[in-house]
Nucleic acid binder design. Sequence first.
DNA 1: TCGCCCTTGAT
DNA 2: TCAAGGGCG
Length: 470
Amino acid sequence: MAPILYWMRRDLRLSDNPALTWVVQQGRPVIPVFCLDEVVETWGAAPKWRLGLGLDVLRGSLEDAGARLILRRGQALDVLRTLIEETGADTVVWNRLYVADERTRDTAVKEALRSDGLTARSFAGHVLFEPWTVETGSGGYYKVYTPFWKAVRDRDPGAPEPAPKEFAAPEVWPQSEALDDWDLGRAMSRGAAVVAPYARVGSAAAEGRLGHFMAHGVADYDSGRDKLAEDGTSGLSENLTLGEIGIRTCWAAGQRAMADGKPGAETFLKELVWRDFAHHLAYHTPHLTSENWRSEWDAFPWSDDNDLAEAWRRGRTGVEVVDAGMREMYVTGRMHNRARMLVASYLTKHLMTHWKVGADWFADCLIDWDPASNAMGWQWAAGSGPDASPFFRIFNPDTQAEKFDPRGTYRRRWLAEGQAKPKETADAFFEAIPESWGLTPGQGYPAPIVDLKEGRDRALAAYKQRDTGQ
DNA sequence: TCGCCCTTGAT
DNA sequence: TCAAGGGCG
């Protein structure tokens, strides 16, 4: 019996997995393969490093079920063709993705394999509702979130499939490259050791996280998720982006919490749908990840990369809550959602720096980096995106800190300078950063690089000018 | 066509 | 109180 190649990408799990479910139903040998291909090679330091951790855990899960994970490096199509030749496979399956570079790759692969006379099948496993299945009344795609939410909230994405108990093995397993040889953490330098304790890797960890959130977090999610110093969110983004947990599994849990009358459950479901919305937009407007979504913003006088942006990246803007967020990201590979909005507003408005500079840094530092959500979020904050905040909505970091970190707990957690006994977390930043930055806690905390009022006024003036087309 | 509405705000 | 324009039904 000819084996089937299961090409794994952002679906590093065995349950809630339509492609895998289909393969196992065929009763034929299955060969799971992950390819370090032309798309994955472009990922930033932290996502690549985190991918390596995920692959290691996935390999163990597959081995427990009597299968293996075959790792190969190269252009996706070349790798798949080589494996087909080595194994006699006549079918390749995968779960679909929707961001421009992923789709370009996948479309080309599908066409090429089919022209080779092979079977290539893809499945819906990465989002709740695929982008082309959600239409406005006039048959277009959605550009505003709330109508999108109303269009999908009563739809059923289907029940998640259980993990297969065992796999039919091929007579001979193809060779796998060694994960260690890929050296996926090489761009992380000292950071890897610091970030590692914060990562929750693999499907079992993800399911534990979901269970914990359903038991403790969801009821108070509405207000809890806004507090900078608290752990009020599900924390699932890290696992969702690599597919270590399925989105329908999360949806089903949210629906159960709704049925149980948990107050925050609907907000949680809405957040899951925000993730879908980002993929909806990335599919229908592929330039979301690379260009201003509204082209009229091309004329806006944003600075490209600059010294102020460098201070922002290093958590040295002199604005405590902004620096705290940036350092949280450097140490943990994640950042509180509200802090993400704050630092994005600050970079694009007070520092008038292009959102792509920020999006690129996030893509390098976040272990939960998701290409669609990251681009949508940055364009939303900058004002160039769909359903964006109006230009006059400029976050005031001081006001935000007062509201969402009233006792300064979050700021003290991440800022060491000027503190008699800095928190371990704050010191950890200085262990994680490159020595080339030349930063020590002893050099004191910087004065603000831009006066908040001046920055705000300058941005408002520029937005106004853009508006009148001058 | 019209009218309501629009994640997360600031002064 | 401010405040823009367009999405959507």
